[in-house]
Computed example of a mutant assay.
Amino acid sequence: MTASDGFDTPEATDTAGRGAKPLDRLIEAVGACQDRQAFQALFAHFAPRIKSYLMQSGSDAGQAEEVAQEVMITVWRRAALFDRRLASASTWIFTIARNKRIDSIRRQRRPQIDFEDPAFVPDPVAPADRIFEEGEDAERVRAAIETLPEEQRALLRMAFFEDKPHSEIASLCSLPLGTVKSRIRLAMTRLRKQLKDE
């Protein structure tokens, strides 16, 4: 980025070859020894400018304030990575601001997961007697299925235990779709009758 990007400020500009610019030196002081005074000076200079940039980019005041603080925290933590040969202090910091703004927009578009949502709450553990009854019921159903003709057992297994659609079953068994449906219906009727008679 260059001065035409609107990121460089008068205080950050200097003629090439005169050594480190004042703001560059401040970041280098923070990176070298976590100089708090240097950071305070950076914060006072950049935080309002970052907030203004974010608001001009469409953020509301509260969001802009929050992102500006995130940017300055990142500057504090990553100041040692700054290299004035690659970018000026202003360009480096406003690049961080732009990236943080993008992150903020992504967070807004991706709603937070509510782990209290019933979909995420596991079902309560059933009482032992209920588990026992369900086991007995499952055993009765298995025994009833075994009394069906093999062809009907195979169709039920594919439809209910393997969760295959009727059209796929018809294709696998080389049967018309209507035949598959009627045989499954017939098997279910026999199953219900047998379970009821018990």
Score class of each variant (00 low, 15 high):
Ala3Tyr: 00
Ala3Gln: 02
Gly6Pro: 00
Phe7His: 04
Phe7Ala: 02
Thr9His: 04
Glu11Pro: 00
Ala12Tyr: 01
Thr13Arg: 13
Thr13Ser: 13
Thr13Gly: 05
Thr13Tyr: 03
Asp14Tyr: 05
Thr15Asp: 12
Gly17Met: 04
Ala20Glu: 11
Ala20Lys: 08
Asp24Pro: 01
Asp24Glu: 13
Arg25Ser: 07
Leu26Val: 01
Ile27Ser: 00
Ile27Val: 11
Ala29Tyr: 00
Gln34Ile: 00
Arg36Val: 09
Ala38Ile: 00
Phe39Ser: 02
Gln40Ser: 10
Ala41Gln: 06
Leu42Glu: 03
Ala44Thr: 06
Arg49Pro: 01
Lys51Ile: 04
Leu54Glu: 02
Leu54Ile: 05
Met55Arg: 10
Met55Tyr: 05
Gly58Arg: 05
Gly62Cys: 12
Gln63Ile: 09
Ala64Pro: 08
Glu66Ile: 08
Gln69Lys: 09
Val71Ile: 11
Met72Gly: 06
Ile73Asn: 13
Ile73Ala: 14
Val75Gly: 01
Trp76Ile: 02
Trp76Met: 07
Arg77Ala: 12
Arg77Phe: 08
Arg78Pro: 02
Arg78Met: 12
Phe82Arg: 04
Asp83Ser: 14
Arg85Tyr: 10
Arg85Phe: 11
Ser88Val: 00
Ala89Phe: 03
Thr91Lys: 06
Trp92Ala: 04
Ile93Thr: 03
Ile96Pro: 01
Ile96Trp: 02
Ala97Asp: 05
Ala97Lys: 03
Arg101Phe: 15
Ile102Pro: 04
Ser104Ile: 04
Ile105Met: 15
Ile105Asp: 09
Arg106Asn: 15
Arg107Tyr: 08
Arg107Trp: 06
Arg107Asp: 13
Arg109Cys: 07
Arg109Ser: 11
Ile113Pro: 03
Phe115Gly: 06
Phe115Glu: 12
Glu116His: 13
Pro118Ala: 11
Val121Ile: 11
Asp123Trp: 09
Val125Ile: 13
Ala126His: 09
Ala128Tyr: 04
Asp129Thr: 09
Arg130Ser: 10
Arg130Pro: 00
Arg130Leu: 11
Glu134Asn: 13
Gly135Pro: 01
Glu136Cys: 15
Asp137Leu: 11
Ala138Trp: 04
Arg140Cys: 08
Arg140Trp: 06
Arg142Cys: 08
Leu148Val: 09
Leu155Gln: 01
Met158Glu: 10
Phe161Ser: 13
Glu162Phe: 08
Pro165Ile: 06
His166Pro: 03
Ala170Lys: 03
Leu172Asp: 09
Leu177Trp: 02
Lys181Asn: 11
Ser182Asp: 14
Ser182Phe: 11
Ile184Met: 04
Leu186Phe: 14
Ala187Arg: 00
Arg190Thr: 07
Leu191Tyr: 03
Leu191Asn: 03
Arg192Leu: 11
Lys193Tyr: 08
Gln194Gly: 15
Lys196Gln: 09
Lys196Ile: 14
